[in-house]
């Protein structure tokens, strides 16, 4: 079912990059112990595993601690506005569908200010991969509630505790029609790399909710908290990834937290419906002398 859609021209024979080759000249500025390090390492490892070259990848970043990662991963990068990474990525992918396009953003970015884009990008099924860094708090703005914060969570903006129920990004992605929906944990990088690798190789829109402790502003959802609650879906032999109802049920579990692939099916891509990009990407067309006589004649 899983189709290899990575476009790298490179293979085992002519590829010699190491994860470190995806480092930029800048050192990460995340807090020591931040979950971002685990995601960062998993991502670089995955690129190497897939023989991807830095210039073959475009990562569009949102705003937040995760978005600052634009400075630390060597690929083409667009550091977009808060909440707007998904539409930027969509435009880029439609204009050049040969690029490997990924999106990185936080929970506030993805299901708060950018929530509308999240829903619509899921239903479009464009061949890109979205990593939602979910630390259940606003870190870069020094600790306010996030849309994913647990009810009762006390923050600077909710000193008496959050009154709302948290948004469940996995459930939202499933309901909105994403064709690959997974959850990872930044404290388990080998599992996370595998989830990312499969997401990139998935033909369609792949979404990963990455549970990531914020060691500075969230003392509730810690590494220990997750380690105690997490279990792996791929360890359940009978689990059927193509069963949406089962995926929805699992996504709503709270006592124990499932990680791994909840759901994966194949559905025609948005790009498959676009005849105009069948032969080549939009950006490859020569535009210097487009004949519009045929159009002009319609006006006589």
């Amino acid at each position: 079912m899983v189709m290899d859609k990575t476009k790298s021209k490179y293979s085992k024979e002519n590829y010699n990059l190491k994860p470190g080759d995806f480092n930029t000249e800048r050192k990460p500025t995340w807090c020591s112990g931040c979950g971002n390090y685990g995601i960062w390492n998993s991502l670089k490892k995955t690129f190497v595993k897939l023989y991807l070259m830095p210039h073959e990848i475009l990562i569009v970043y949102g705003i937040g601690c995760s978005g600052n990662g634009a400075n630390f991963i060597k690929t083409y990068a667009f550091h977009a506005l808060h909440g707007r990474a998904l539409p930027v990525a969509t435009g880029a992918k439609l204009a050049n569908h040969k690029l490997n396009v990924m999106i990185i953003g936080g929970d506030g970015d993805g299901v708060g200010i950018g929530g509308n884009h999240f829903m619509h990008t899921c239903r479009r099924n464009i061949n890109m991969t979205y990593l939602l860094h979910n630390n259940k708090v606003y870190g870069l703005t020094t600790g306010q509630t996030a849309p994913t914060s647990d009810k009762g969570f006390k923050t600077k903006s909710t000193p008496s505790g959050v009154l709302e129920k948290p948004v469940n990004p996995v459930l939202l992605a499933l309901a909105s029609g994403a064709t690959y929906v997974a959850r990872g944990f930044s404290g388990d990088t080998s599992h996370l790399s595998e989830v990312i690798r499969k997401a990139i190789k998935h033909k369609g829109f792949s979404f990963i909710d990455v549970l990531q402790p914020c060691v500075t502003f969230n003392k509730q959802n810690t590494y220990d908290f997750y380690r105690e609650k997490i279990y792996k879906l791929d360890e359940i032999k009978s689990y059927d990834k193509s069963d949406l109802n089962e995926a929805i049920k699992r996504s709503m579990e709270e006592e124990k937290i499932p990680i791994g692939i909840f759901y994966q099916v194949e559905r025609p891509l948005y790009e498959d419906g676009l005849k105009q990009i069948e032969r080549k990407p939009l950006v490859d067309h020569i535009i210097t002398d487009i004949d519009i006589n045929r159009l002009l004649n319609n006006y006589y």
């Binding site: 969509t90 690029l99 990009i277």
Partner: peptide
């Protein structure tokens, strides 16, 4: 490619993405 997007924030950011890749 003509895209009727979900809102005007999506509209302008999609166009920016398309322009960014050329």
């Amino acid at each position: 490619v003509t895209k009727h997007a979900e809102d005007e924030m999506a509209v302008i950011n999609m166009a920016i993405g398309a322009s960014f890749v050329g």
